[in-house]
Amino acid sequence: MRFKDVFSIIGPAMVGPSSSHTAGAVRIGRSARQLLGAVPSRAEILFYGSFAATYQGHGTDTAIVGGLLDYATDDPRIPDSLQLAAQSGVTVSFAEGKGLYSHPNTAELWLKSEATGQSLTMTGTSIGGGSIEIVKVNGFTVRFSGVYPTLIISHSDVPGMIADMTQLFKSHGMNIGFMSVDRKSRSGEAVTVLELDAAVSPVLIKALKRISAVRDIRMVDLNVAGEV
């Protein structure tokens, strides 16, 4: 992914010491929190590559948990996030991942919310300057940054599905900046990711949910403070 502007290289306002190892980790955690839709009751975090080698020294562990608690990159509570998570009833474990990984700064998260019954697996990479790419969600290959309002739509792989969705975006005057699709098998489960130029209205979300093949819709927008 190319950097969007010079501020992507300099990095965001943040609690240090590293834009890649802390600010990027916060954003990975926040992306997972928004996808899960709740505070996780349990989080298992696997670090790969440089993350695995230096996560304690660079504060990657406290940063990614701060993201799970929905903290921004410059939130002063980040250094205390492990204790704050424990006080909130969140059980967190860290381990070094095994096998291949897509980027030297890679984290794989396994989350569970007892309150909602929802679970999530997600893999994210910190690509520099605090920028991230989410590359896998619940076993599907995806690609998004969280910089733009992003919909992750789980649906059945049926003919005309993409046309039905894009027609709705057209009728609501919404422009799609980037789209990717992955499926587990022909006519099986699929996921479509759409990065958009503007926030999605509740009316459009309801219209998308009325498509019979749609199973679930999640949204990630790291520019929004608090829950999406």
Rank of each mutant, 00 (worst) to 15 (best):
D197R: 06
T125I: 15
F3I: 01
S18D: 13
Q56F: 13
H155W: 00
S187F: 15
G173Q: 06
L168W: 05
L84Y: 02
I162G: 00
V228M: 08
L68E: 07
L46V: 03
M1E: 03
G24Y: 02
S41T: 15
A43P: 05
W110F: 15
S201Y: 04
G59C: 14
E195M: 12
A43L: 04
K136T: 10
A213D: 10
R2M: 01
A198M: 11
Y101D: 01
Q87W: 04
F7Q: 04
M14N: 03
S126E: 11
G16A: 06
L82N: 10
L36E: 06
G89N: 02
E44W: 08
R27Y: 07
G24T: 04
R143K: 08
I45E: 04
V137L: 12
S154Y: 14
D157E: 12
I132K: 05
I205V: 14
T166I: 07
Y148P: 00
P40E: 04
M161R: 09
S187R: 15
M165K: 05
V200W: 03
L151T: 05
S88P: 02
S145D: 10
S88E: 11
Y48E: 02
Y55E: 12
P79E: 08
G97N: 02
D182Y: 01
L46A: 15
W110V: 14
V228D: 03
Q87N: 14
V220P: 04
Y71S: 09
R218D: 07
F178P: 00
P202A: 09
F51A: 14
A13P: 07
I152N: 10
L82Q: 09
I176C: 03
T166H: 03
R218T: 02
I153D: 03
F7K: 07
L168Y: 07
Q83V: 11
A107C: 12
A13K: 14
S41R: 04
D80R: 13
V6W: 05
G117T: 10
V193Q: 01
R30I: 03
L204P: 08
S180M: 00
M161I: 14
S19N: 06
P40V: 07
H21K: 12
Q118T: 06
I45C: 07
R183C: 02
T116L: 08
L84A: 11
M1R: 03
Q34R: 09
G128V: 02
E227H: 08
R77G: 08
H155E: 09
K209F: 01
V39P: 00
A63L: 12
M174A: 10
L69D: 07
D182G: 09
S212A: 15
V191D: 00
A198N: 11
S50D: 15
S187Q: 15
M174S: 09
G124T: 08
A23G: 11
L82A: 09
S126T: 11
L36D: 06
T141D: 15
G59H: 13
S156H: 13
T106K: 02
N175V: 07
Y148S: 09
K4S: 05
S171H: 10
A198T: 14
A43I: 05
S171M: 09
T22C: 14
V15K: 01
R30W: 04
M179T: 09
D74V: 03
T125S: 10
L194H: 01
M161N: 12
H155L: 15
G130R: 02
D216N: 13
G160R: 08
P149F: 05
